[in-house]
């Protein structure tokens, strides 16, 4: 695997906040449903350091949310089961912890922001209650103290008139404000790792940019490791340090962000890039990736992308699944023909 490079960031408030915070190794998740066994995650490996942003990219249905839920320990189980791998937070394997120990990690050390804040916030409680709850249950604060902290949090995410708005219910906020509440909730206990699962997908384009910059700013300030899950290549360029591209429950390419844009080394990544409108290539024909991602109950043998791949040959249709080849420094691709893909432009 690629070596971990500790980022040399100025003004790190907490000296412990350096180095790999979360390391996921060979994670496997399956769903045992009536329709059959769905292999949603098939050996995902990634890590995120404190103060760093890792983007996990992939079409919808490729297992991004399931990976995030497995890390948080909030899979719907049954039908979902983690069947292999390790999830290490600061070296400790979360999968070996008791439920109680794991619960203490949630929100305290690893927190999560969900895609659709309207459905992710409880409709029948005020946002103040839902924020204060964290301080009351994890920090043993009183209702009044919790309420005070809730106001501070709403201020932090720049919701105007925070003092009044803590008394409002989620449906009384606009989409962007609601996502700010979600962010406030995730940041409440000052976690070291933040997983944002498509945090802007449900929002208007103008609001998307505001939310992304707020998130990036808070991440820098607090030296958090941010895992930004998205299916939108356009979102990641400005904020991510590294990118992991996911397909059918596997990582197919991992690299620093500029590397991915400059020299994509997996046909799927390449196809994703070609489907993004770019200002410098105005008028260029946008291509869409042909075909659909595989159903997870019947993933094709060999490389899962082979039925849609223009580089595919006989070798790609046979097991084993291509391993992650190291194609350059800190850059890996799971394609047998990565050299060809890199040369081709």
């Amino acid at each position: 695997m690629t070596a971990d490079v500790t980022l040399d960031v100025e003004g790190v408030a907490d000296p412990s906040r350096t180095g790999p915070a979360l390391e996921v190794t060979d994670l496997q998740v399956e769903f045992r449903t009536r329709a059959g066994l769905a292999h949603a995650v098939n050996g995902v490996t990634f890590h995120v350091d404190a103060g760093e942003t890792l983007a996990i990219l992939g079409e919808s249905g490729c297992g991004k949310s399931v990976t995030a839920q497995a890390v948080m320990g909030i899979l719907d189980s049954p039908p979902g089961f983690v069947t292999g791998g390790q999830i290490r937070y600061r070296g400790k394997d979360l999968l070996k912890m008791s439920e109680q120990q794991r619960r203490a990690v949630r929100a305290n050390q690893i927190a999560m922001i969900f895609q659709d804040a309207l459905s992710a916030l409880n409709p029948v409680f005020t946002v103040g209650f839902q924020l204060a709850e964290l301080f009351r249950k994890h920090r043993g604060m009183s209702r009044a103290e919790g309420r005070k902290r809730a106001v501070e949090l709403l201020d932090l995410v720049r919701i105007p008139a925070a003092r009044q708005r803590v008394r409002d219910f989620p449906h009384q906020f606009s989409g962007g404000m609601r996502q700010r509440v979600m962010i406030a909730m995730a940041l409440a206990l000052d976690p070291e790792v933040l997983i944002a699962d498509e945090p802007t997908t449900a929002l208007d384009v103008t609001v998307q940019a505001q939310i992304m910059s707020l998130l990036a700013e808070l991440q820098r300030e607090r030296q958090m490791g941010l895992i930004l899950i998205t299916h939108d290549m356009g979102v990641v360029a400005d904020v991510a340090d590294r990118i992991s591209v996911m397909y059918a429950g596997r990582m197919v390419e991992q690299a620093p962000v500029h590397e991915v844009y400059a020299r994509p080394s997996h046909p799927y990544t390449k196809a994703l890039l070609e489907s993004v409108p770019r200002l410098d290539q105005k008028g260029r024909q946008l291509s869409v990736i042909q075909g659909l991602p595989p159903t997870l109950t019947a993933i094709p043998p060999g490389c899962a992308f082979n039925p849609r791949c223009r580089y595919a040959r006989e070798e790609c249709r046979q097991p084993p699944v291509p391993p992650l080849y190291e194609v350059a420094d800190r850059h890996a691709s799971a394609c047998h023909f990565w050299q060809e893909v890199r040369q081709d432009d």
Partner: peptide, 30 residues
């Protein structure tokens, strides 16, 4: 129990008694 906000409640590290008794039940009683 499969609602998104219940998942959020679990992600907040709340005990399952509270997730069911407070977050799920209140909505279920409507």
């Amino acid at each position: 129990v499969r609602a998104d906000y219940v998942r959020t409640a679990r992600a907040k590290g709340l005990a399952s008694n509270r997730v069911v008794g407070v977050h799920t039940l209140r909505n279920s009683l409507i």
